[in-house]
Amino acid sequence: MANRTRWTLKRHVAASLLTLTAALTSTSFAKAADETCFKTPTPVISLGFGSRYEADSKTRSDIDEESDAAVTKALKPIDQFIQNLAKIVSKAESEKDVATRRAYQRCVVDSIYAWAKADALSDMRTFNAKLSVPSRIGGLAILYAESRDQVPGLHDRERVIEKWLQKRAQEIVYFFENEATKGASRNNLRAWASLAVGEVGVLNRDRGLVEWSILSNDNMITNADSDGSLPLEMNRQRYALHYQLHAMAPLVTSVARNCEAGYGKGGADLDKLKKMARFSITAVKDPKIVQKINGKSQTVKPGLKNNLSAIAWLEPYVSVTNDLEMEKEFASFRPMSNTKLGGNLTKLYDDRRISCTISVQN
């Protein structure tokens, strides 16, 4: 009887230990999840707002402060989501422990999956909302691409994400081909659309989307002036240099990522792209160069150090052009980051040299 009592007691103790261990393990996993992720925000389904600019501003350079604030407020939840994802992606890229790195990568996939499952950004109710969404889709697609296929067991979620991104990309193409104004279909907004559509095309191996991106990039480079300035952006009065940089960011990144995916440069003139990059950086150092073109003083503060996020595209630029002379201009300012281009671009392109030789077969 005593032996049976001792055996029963041991069994209860063992069971209690197992329960305690399971509880501690569950708590540990929960804590690890909290430490490697953030609370996914409620998916934004609909957007509807007007222009940031005065209604009678033909050059779209006269800001309507009230409308500008309303647009920023509407986009803030999406932009904050992208910023949080970019931080996680950057942490994953720097993490040496495999388990922790996968936890970061799972965070990215799970968070974007929540938005994909809800069909986020599917209801663009105004013209200006449709203009604003491509840069956000592009940012999400790049951040997803950096985390895709890294964690076992997530393929079902990844298929949902890729299908969702495909729908958004097709809507972007339709808008720019059928609804966008002549200016919007050729300026920095088209470059952001090109980046988004190309990235989604690469993810889904959709040659049509990639070709649309390549053609868009080629047109922008071809239409740049011989000095490297973009005529449509130079018309933006005191915001001209700001928008030159705003166009170069997605344009350069899109060219680099399409090349890296094996689709080649699609006829893009890389020598012309170098002129555009050098004009942009020279103008950042001395904005009066742009003032001489359009007669307006610029909003951009002089100096590379004052514009690091706006010139972070120099990392993919050097990777695809091997312009070592340009690299010397910004090397001391590393790391270079821009959340809509993938976060820490120095880490993403870390001494990589991207070939523009066509290798994709589909």
Rank of each mutant, 00 (worst) to 15 (best):
N219Q: 12
D64P: 15
S309G: 10
M234W: 11
N204C: 05
L209E: 00
S28I: 13
A30R: 11
E171I: 01
N344L: 01
A331S: 06
K167H: 05
G262Y: 00
K87L: 10
L85P: 03
G303C: 05
I82S: 04
E315F: 02
A74D: 14
A193R: 02
G139C: 05
S67Q: 14
T321Y: 06
A141W: 02
H242I: 09
K296D: 07
T19H: 08
V44E: 06
S337F: 02
Q83R: 12
S16Q: 09
E211L: 03
T25R: 12
K182L: 11
T321C: 01
R236Q: 11
K288N: 14
V202D: 03
G342K: 02
L341D: 04
A141D: 04
Q291M: 13
Y239F: 15
V200D: 00
N307C: 12
Q244W: 00
E260G: 00
F175V: 09
R6F: 13
I161D: 04
I214T: 08
E315G: 08
F279S: 03
P134T: 07
V202S: 00
T59S: 15
T299W: 07
A116W: 04
R4E: 13
E325A: 08
L314A: 03
A30Q: 14
S216F: 04
L314K: 04
Q150R: 15
N188V: 07
R238H: 06
D123S: 10
S51H: 06
V44G: 03
W7H: 11
Q83V: 14
S67H: 10
N188F: 03
N187M: 12
I289R: 08
L232Y: 04
H242K: 14
F279T: 06
N217Y: 05
E211T: 12
G343D: 03
R257L: 09
S51C: 11
A180D: 01
E211S: 07
S319E: 06
K292T: 13
G153S: 12
T282L: 11
T321M: 02
L304H: 07
R101Q: 13
M326F: 13
G267Q: 10
T21M: 14
